[in-house]
Amino acid sequence: MSPAVAVDQATQTEASKQQVEKLLGLWHQHYADAASLNERRSAFERLMEEAPGPSRVQIRHVDAGGVDAELIWPARLHHPIGRRALLYVHGGGFYSGSPDTHRALAGSLAKATSADVLLIDYRLAPEYPYPAQIDDTLTAYGWLLDSGYENDNIVIVGDSTGGNLAIEAVLRQMQLKGPLPAAVIAMSPITDLSATDKRTETNEVGDPVLGILALDAASKRYLKGLSPKDPRVSPYYADMAGFPPLLVQVGTADALGDNALHFADKARVAGVDVTTQVWPGMVHQWQLFPFWLDDARKSNQSAADYAMRHFADKPKQ
Rank of each mutant, 00 (worst) to 15 (best):
A104Y: 07
L138V: 14
T252M: 06
P181D: 04
L261D: 01
V205Q: 15
P245H: 05
I72D: 07
D239H: 09
Q58I: 06
L105K: 15
Y236P: 01
F243Y: 12
K316G: 14
M1R: 07
P126E: 03
L288G: 03
T113F: 08
L176P: 13
P52R: 02
L145W: 07
S299Y: 01
V170P: 04
N164F: 05
K298R: 12
F289R: 11
A241Q: 15
K224N: 15
P74N: 03
L145V: 07
Y306H: 06
H102Q: 09
D152E: 12
V269S: 12
F243Q: 10
M174W: 05
E70L: 08
A10M: 14
T275V: 11
Q29P: 03
S36N: 11
I59D: 05
F243W: 04
V20H: 03
A241E: 13
V233I: 03
A238L: 02
P228N: 12
V250D: 04
Q173A: 13
P235V: 04
Q175D: 13
P231S: 10
E204C: 08
Q301D: 13
E70W: 08
T252D: 06
A125V: 04
D68V: 01
N300P: 02
Y222I: 11
A115F: 11
L119S: 05
G162K: 09
V272L: 01
A304D: 03
P131M: 08
G211R: 11
N153A: 02
K111V: 12
P280T: 08
V89Y: 03
G107F: 00
M174D: 02
Y128M: 14
D230S: 13
A4T: 06
G281M: 06
D63A: 10
G257K: 01
K316A: 12
D192S: 10
K224L: 12
Q133M: 13
P131Q: 06
Q58Y: 08
G225C: 02
M174R: 14
W286G: 00
D68N: 15
W286Q: 05
P99T: 00
D305T: 12
R172L: 07
R221F: 14
P235L: 02
Y122N: 10
Q277G: 03
A125I: 06
H30F: 13
L246S: 01
D313T: 14
G178F: 00
I156Q: 09
G206M: 06
G65R: 09
Q175F: 05
H61L: 07
M174P: 04
G251N: 05
E150K: 13
L223P: 09
D239Q: 14
H102E: 13
L77C: 07
L105G: 10
Y236N: 09
V62F: 09
Y149H: 15
Y31P: 11
A255D: 00
H61D: 08
K229I: 12
T101H: 07
G91E: 05
V157F: 12
A307P: 04
P179I: 04
A75P: 05
W279G: 08
T200M: 04
S55H: 12
P189L: 14
E14W: 02
Y306L: 08
T196Y: 13
V205H: 14
R46I: 02
G82A: 07
R41L: 15
